Simulated assay, not measured.
Amino acid sequence: MTDAEAFASIALAAVACDGSLGREEAHALRRSLEFRSPYRDRTEQEMGSLFDRLLVTLREQGVDQLVNEALPALTPVQQETALAVAVQLTHADREVSDAESRFLKQLCERLTLPEGRAVLVMEAITALHRDCLSG
């Protein structure tokens, strides 16, 4: 698996971990990748092919296997950014389900980041999504 496939795999796993892939989540997934290299240089057809391949693994082997295959292909810096994107994507529909929370917790435990770094990343992205202003 290439690093581009692996990074997209983590993002896909984040939106699929609760057993559904809603329209808002699918759009958020696309937006989270489209400005990043190397995805920004790919055609719609190439991106479709990438996700078709990843969806086969997801459907046949599940979210855990998709993540298992992806993580070794990512450097710690790439893992950190993939985690940030995953947290961002779990907030795409403005609700983080129990399944999404479990997924993020398990992902943090599997990353090869310095102690406490994954939690800091999760907390920072969660703070960005906090609805803290009164109406």
Results as ranks from 00 to 15, higher is better:
Glu25Trp: 03
Pro114His: 02
Cys108His: 08
Ala99Gly: 01
Leu66Lys: 01
Ala11His: 03
Arg40Glu: 06
Ala73Arg: 11
Gln106His: 12
Leu21Arg: 12
Ala26Cys: 07
Glu123Phe: 09
Arg59Glu: 06
Glu109Val: 03
Ala11Val: 03
Glu100Lys: 11
Ala82Leu: 10
Pro72His: 10
Met47Ala: 01
Ala11Asp: 04
Glu115Lys: 13
Val121Arg: 08
Pro114Glu: 13
Leu54Cys: 11
Phe35Tyr: 06
Arg130Asn: 03
His129Asn: 13
Leu89Ile: 12
Ser9Pro: 04
Ala26His: 03
Gln78Pro: 03
Leu120Ala: 10
Gly19Glu: 02
Leu55Ile: 05
Gly62Gln: 05
Val121Thr: 14
Leu83Ser: 04
Thr57Val: 11
Leu83His: 06
Thr126Ser: 11
Gly135His: 15
Tyr39Ile: 01
Ser9Asp: 09
Arg94Tyr: 07
Leu74Asn: 04
Glu44Arg: 00
Met122Trp: 07
Ser32Val: 06
Glu69Arg: 15
Glu24Asp: 09
Thr126Tyr: 05
Val85Glu: 02
Pro38Glu: 04
Leu83Lys: 08
Cys132Val: 15
Arg30Asp: 00
Thr43Gly: 00
Leu133Arg: 14
His91Ser: 09
Leu33Phe: 09
Glu24Gly: 12
Cys132Arg: 15
Pro38Asn: 09
Ala99Met: 07
Leu74Thr: 07
Leu128Lys: 13
Arg117Tyr: 03
Gln61Leu: 11
Gln88Phe: 15
Val87Phe: 05
Val56Gly: 00
Ala84Asn: 03
Ala14Tyr: 02
Val119Phe: 00
Ala8Lys: 13
Glu69His: 05
Phe7Met: 15
Val67Leu: 12
Leu54Ile: 08
Gly19Leu: 05
Leu111Lys: 06
Leu66Pro: 02
Ala13Ser: 11
Leu33His: 02
Ala13Lys: 02
Arg30Gly: 01
Thr57Tyr: 03
Arg31Ser: 05
Leu55Gln: 10
Arg23Gly: 12
Ser9Arg: 12
Ala127Arg: 15
His27Thr: 08
His129Ser: 07
Leu50Val: 07
Glu115Leu: 14
Asp52Tyr: 00
Glu25Cys: 10
Arg102Asp: 09
Glu115Cys: 05
Leu111Phe: 02
Glu24Cys: 07
Gln61Lys: 15
Asp98Val: 07
Ser134Thr: 13
Tyr39Phe: 06
Thr2Leu: 03
Thr43Phe: 00
Ser37Met: 05
Gly48Lys: 10
Gln65Val: 14
Ser9Ala: 14
Leu120Pro: 00
Arg59Cys: 09
Glu95Lys: 10
Gln45Trp: 03
Glu95Ser: 12
Gln45Phe: 00
Val56Lys: 14
Leu113Glu: 10
Ala26Thr: 13
Glu34Met: 04
Phe7Pro: 05
Arg30Gln: 14
Asp64Trp: 04
